[in-house]
Design a protein around this nucleic acid. Structure first.
Lengths: 354, 354
DNA sequence: GGCATGAATATAATCGTTTCACTTGCTGCG
DNA sequence: CGCAGCAAGTGAAACGATTATATTCATGCC
């Protein structure tokens, strides 16, 4: 492959002139510029980005550290990141930790988890990336991860405990409050909650949102209406079963994610309960299948792409040396009202399951 | 950040010795090696991979060109690729074309499509990747994409018309034949097909599989049982409606993907048909929600991760100069038998819809 | 005319490695 | 003893760009 030196010889100018002609950083006469351009065309010359990087110590590469590319929100977030980075001429080096398969039980292997993350950061540093975006799905706060030396790090989706880190997340509490209010406005008084894994901070935030909505409407939250799941379909199925077995079952269920909501659907079908006539159900995540369930599931759509776009923007700001990059940006979610909820005709009347 | 020169001074040896000590390519006395290692530890020295790349003209980076990272099989394929590449010490540069949003109607904008792909390849070449894996979801054969100069290109998921290209795909025809046979063995005689977009070669292959199974069993394929969809949920819903309205409706439906199968579920629920008692349904793709539908959907799981692993392996072979890298590898799919199918009790007896 | 000014161009140092070619000093053998 | 052979170590030339500095030459102004 041709080099600048060859172009210089072909165009009968110095390499410096070739460099200036191509970069436009300094004036070059029209005549010489033309000669250079012709030589470039003739030889199909391509600038060697490696040599350029060595000289300028800028690689134009951003590292994306994904806990697992297969994770639900991750592809959309990466899509947003790649869009924003491409617009600014950066490339994207992906480090995929595969934590979904390796550390399935994430609540008990924190040190191995941290180790994986740090190794990933190490690898990206070795590749001389100019910045790192960490797409973290972990549902606990992280503060032990290694701060890469000299290059900015932005958290996307989940955030860090480190007060001077930059992160872009979404509104958990407000969103659950909103969807719960929606049910209350439709006349529901007996609203149950199927929560996520109890140890998860995400569960706590969403629970707080649910509490806020119920308290705000002066509605009770009997303990038997608060069911603990583990984010999986199966637990939604089981907890819905427990709810339907109550002497006074709920008229509406808020599931903390769509998978558990789908579990409710299955249990309801099994028990002959019709959604939304006999029971309203809402989820969280707006997974692709939410619209495919019958009836289509009312749920909350996360601003995943926007998280990616914004995280990339924050990183670019840091790289530009912009002052006052916001520490934590919390993006709003969108309520997707579909057909799994219905206004209660005789609000307040007891209804018996099965 | 420290350089080899500084290490050399600190350890009182030449830079050449430092390089040899670190790479292990030449014998270095234990004494000097120790001094080098100490200096490395002391200064927290990291080899500059850019300088190394410049000197050796090897970057250790593989480009992954994804038509859209959000596409159904893509994250799993990328997961497989990243696993195999990481094992071999390669990094992964991701170029995401976002074609899902940009070229929605893929059947009419071929030239813009090719342009995007070629620009993506260009970008990866500029970054000096050592090889490219093209994760193509396009459902037509591609032969106009630019062959990158000097670096190997492997197709994953879809293949190319170019006879001397390397690709890794999956078994379309055999898989649909298998799932259809499964229905036939259960006594179904009136089996309908909801096909994908008629222009797609994938549709043609899957149709051929269906035909093979039906022909093999000597069963008729009346034209009203062959319905054309477009891969979307909505079309499954509509075509299922058309099938149920027939005077002699089918007892089983093969949908060419899970989204359209979900559409069948919705139509069946609307019409009061129970799955699998009144109707058996099978899909294709094993999307996450297939197990969440009620009843869980029998479908075909693509070997996505395996496609990624294998494609990466093929590329590594090419890089190693291994002779006889197989041109096209076709991986088997897995039949996921769940609860959406049931043996017909009185096989052959007419059954009326609704 | 003399001289400062500025544009266009060239020269050469530099980025941090790898690796070829060479020196040095030691061992073993005829 | 002399010399081949080998291991350990060094020096310096690449790799292919960027860019500070120097050079040349035309121009404008007093």
């Amino acid at each position: 492959m041709a080099t600048m030196k060859e172009i210089a010889e072909l165009a009968n100018v110095s390499v410096a002139t070739v460099s200036y002609a191509l970069s436009g950083k300094k004036n070059v006469s029209q005549a010489k510029r033309d000669r250079v351009m012709n030589a470039v065309r003739l030889t199909n010359y391509k600038l060697n980005s490696i040599a350029k990087s060595l000289r300028t110590s800028k690689t134009g590469i951003i590292g994306v550290l994904a806990e697992d590319i297969r994770g639900l929100p991750v592809p959309e977030i990466v899509d947003g990141i790649s869009q924003r980075l491409t617009e600014s001429g950066y490339q994207l080096l992906l480090s995929n930790l595969q934590l979904l398969s390796k550390l399935y039980n994430r609540y008990e292997q924190l040190s191995r988890y941290i180790g994986s993350v740090n190794r990933g950061i190490q690898l990206l540093e070795d590749a001389r990336v100019e910045g790192i975006i960490y797409v973290a799905m972990h549902d606990r706060r992280i503060d032990d991860i290694r701060q890469p030396a000299g290059i900015p790090l932005v958290f996307a989706y989940a955030d860090s405990d480190d007060p001077n880190s930059v992160s872009v997340t979404y509104e958990n509490q407000r969103s659950v409050a909103a969807v719960t209010c929606c049910l209350i406005e439709q006349g529901h008084r007996r609203v149950a909650l199927i929560a996520g894994h109890p140890a998860s901070p995400v569960t706590k935030e969403r629970l707080a949102g649910f509490r806020a909505a119920m308290d705000g409407a002066g509605l009770p939250m009997p303990p038997e209406y608060l069911r603990w799941g583990d984010w999986e379909y199966r637990s939604g199925f089981e907890q819905a079963g427990a709810l339907f077995a109550l002497t006074v079952p709920p008229t509406a269920i808020v599931a903390m994610n769509d998978a558990m909501a789908a579990g409710c659907y299955a249990q309801a079908a099994l028990q002959g309960l019709r959604i939304p006539d006999d029971l309203s159900v809402v989820g969280f995540d707006n997974q692709s299948f939410a619209a495919y369930l019958y009836p289509p599931l009312t749920t909350i759509a996360l601003p995943n792409k926007q998280i990616g776009l914004t995280a990339a923007q924050r990183l670019l700001w840091k790289l530009e040396g912009k002052p006052d990059v916001p520490a934590n940006t919390v993006l709003p979610c969108e309520l997707m009202v579909r057909e799994s909820t219905r206004a209660l005709p005789g609000a307040g009347q007891p209804r018996s399951a099965r």
